[in-house]
Amino acid sequence: MSVRHALLALLSEGPKYGLQLREEFEARTGEVWPLNVGQVYTTLQRLERDGLVESDGDGQDGPQKDFRITATGTQELTAWLRTPPDMSSPPRDELVMKILVALRVPGTDVREVIQVHRRYLVQLMQQWTRIKDTEAESDMSLALVVDAELFRLDAVVRWLDAADGRIKRTATDPMATATATTTTTGTTQAVPGLRRRIGARK
């Protein structure tokens, strides 16, 4: 989360002072991203140094000091909104690691390991859904944050389901592994590097 750009976004609506920025930031992110006031002032100082915001000219620091976005700041914000974050390399996902490792530990029921994680994730999703049900209906920012969490957790549950199905299929049909191996070795040069990066081994 770029606090820098979030503050620029809030200032794009008009001049604001530090405490106000913190309150609005928390309100806009459905209060799930707590931000301390020190972080707000440090970020504002850097933004001012970089010419992206400017403050009252009287040089007085304090909670009521107003900050404004500059033309350069507006350009920076517009460009940032349209720059996709880097999602090209697979993150080192701890859960993926655990399942890959479980496959190699003798005497481990991997499907049982998968279920432990699936249950935990569904329980988390139940909590988020309670929030959506009770609090998010009148608060669109909160609803969007909760949706993002639910979709993220849902994607992990789906991955676990797919892994579960794949492991079951491989156990009952050894041909499934043979086919998979042939296909992987037949693919492009990028695969061995990718395999190393995500920590997967044949």
């Binding site: 699936r118 249950r119 569904v122 999703m125 139940q126 859904t129 849902d154 789906r158």
Partner: peptide
């Protein structure tokens, strides 16, 4: 679908 299931008080697997 886990998103639908998460509306429930209890989820049975």
């Amino acid at each position: 679908d886990a998103q639908l299931a998460s509306w429930a008080d209890r989820v049975v697997f």
